[in-house]
Nucleic acid binder design. Structure first.
Lengths: 203, 203
DNA sequence: GTTTATGCTTAACGGTGTTAAGTGAAAGGA
DNA sequence: TCCTTTCACTTAACACCGTTAAGCATAAAC
C-alpha cells in the first residue's frame, strides 16, 4: 500500500498548489480578471489539468470562499463568546465582519455581491455558502441574546438580524465598490453605522 | 441642407435603436451575459456598426445608466420638495431609492455594485455617474435640512448621508444579490431599515 | 461624370472557459 | 519479467468573446 498513498498525497499537494495559485491571483486581481490559463501557467501545468481537480472556474472559487469564510465564522464565534454583554459582542461581531470584508474584498465581492447565475437550484444555492451561513447564524445568535434580555424594541430576531446584516453589508460593499468616493473617515463611518443601528434598536 | 439633416436624423435613430436593444438585453439578462454580437443581431446590423456609435461595450452601458439614473434623480428631487417635513421627505426618498434599485437591478448592479476597472482616473470616475451623484446630492440635501432643524444628534451632514446611503444600499444590494435567501417580508425589512436608521439618528 | 466622403460589412486578432482525444509512464497481474 | 491496464497529464480544438483593420458599395459634392 506504499505507492498508492504516495500518489494520493501527491494529488492532494497539486490540488493545494492550484488553490494557492488561484487564491493569490483572485485576491490580487479579481475573479473575472484571472483566466484558467494564467492559473495553469503559475503552477506550470497545462490548463486542462485544473479540470481534473475542480469542476470549473466557479468551483475553484467556491472552494476558496468556503475556506476563507470558515475563518470569518470562527472569528465571529470566538468574539461573541468573548464578550459577556450581548450588545458589546454584537458590536464587535459587526466590526469583525466589516473588517473581514475589507481585508478580502474579492472573496467578499464574489460571495456577497454576485447574483446567482441564471440556472441555479435553491438547494445548491443554500449549500454553496454554508460557511457564510455559519457566520450569518452567529450574528443571529448574537441578536437573539439581545432580544432575550429585552435590550431591543423589535422582537423579531430574523428581521433584526437581516436588517443588521444589510446595514454592515452596505458599508462593506460600498467601501469596496467605490474606493475613490470622497468618504468621510472610513473608521468613523463604520462606527457610526454600527452604533446608530444598535442605538435605533434599543428599547 | 436637406439630405444632411435627414442623414443626421437617421443616424440619431439608429443610435437610439442600439440603446433600446442594449437596454432590453442588459436589463433582462445582465450586462456580462449579453454580447455585442447579440445586440447587433437584435438590431439587424453587423457587430462593428455599434462601434461607430459607441466607444465600447462599457460606453454603451454608461449611456444607459445615465439615462436611467437621471430618472431616479428627478424623482428624488420631486419627492423631497413634496414633503414639507424633512424627516418625512428623507424617509420617502430612501424608499424611492430602494424601490428604484429593485426595479432596475441590472442598472443598479453595474453602477453601485461594480468596482472600477484597474486603470481608472479619479476625474473620469467622478464624472462617470454624474446622474448618480445628483441623486446622492438630493439625499445629502434632505439630511442637511434635518440637521439644520436640529432633528439629529449627529451634526456631520456628510457622515450621516454616507451612513444612510450605505444602509439603504445594503438592503437594496442584498435583496438583488440573494433573491433566494429566506428573507422576512421584504417590505417589512425595508421599512425596518429606514425607520431604525432614522430612529437612531434622532436627537 | 468623376471624385470624395460616408455608412456599413467582412475578416481577422488575440483572448476566454471548456471538452474530446491522445500519450507516456507507472502500477498490477501472470 | 513481460504484458496489460490504469492513471495523470497534454495537445488540439470548439464555440464564444470584445475589438480593430481593411474593403466595399452607395450617396453626396464638385
Amino acid at each position: 500500500m506504499g505507492p498508492k498513498q504516495r500518489r494520493a498525497r501527491e494529488k492532494e499537494m497539486l490540488r493545494q498548489d492550484i488553490l494557492d495559485a488561484a487564491r493569490e491571483l483572485f485576491v490580487t486581481e479579481g475573479y473575472e480578471n484571472v483566466s484558467m490559463r494564467r492559473i495553469a501557467e503559475k503552477i506550470e501545468y497545462s490548463p486542462t489539468t485544473i479540470y481534473l481537480y475542480f469542476e470549473d472556474k466557479a468551483d475553484l472559487l467556491h472552494a476558496l470562499c468556503e475556506e476563507t469564510f470558515a475563518r470569518l465564522a470562527n472569528r465571529t464565534e470566538a468574539i461573541t463568546k468573548q464578550y459577556p454583554d450581548p450588545i458589546d459582542g454584537l458590536r464587535r461581531g459587526c466590526r469583525a465582519y466589516i473588517e473581514f470584508g475589507l481585508k478580502h474584498p474579492n472573496h467578499y465581492r464574489v460571495t456577497f455581491m454576485t447574483p446567482p447565475p441564471p440556472g441555479f437550484a435553491k438547494e445548491h444555492y443554500m449549500r454553496e455558502d454554508s460557511q457564510g451561513m455559519r457566520a450569518y447564524n452567529c450574528l443571529r445568535q448574537g441578536v437573539g441574546r439581545c432580544v432575550e434580555q429585552g435590550h431591543f424594541r423589535e422582537k423579531d430576531v430574523d428581521a433584526v438580524t437581516q436588517m443588521l446584516w444589510a446595514a454592515i453589508h452596505g458599508v462593506t460593499s460600498l467601501l469596496i465598490t467605490k474606493p475613490l468616493f470622497p468618504w468621510v473617515n472610513k473608521n468613523a463611518l463604520i462606527d457610526l453605522m454600527i452604533d446608530n443601528a444598535i442605538q435605533g434598536l434599543k428599547a
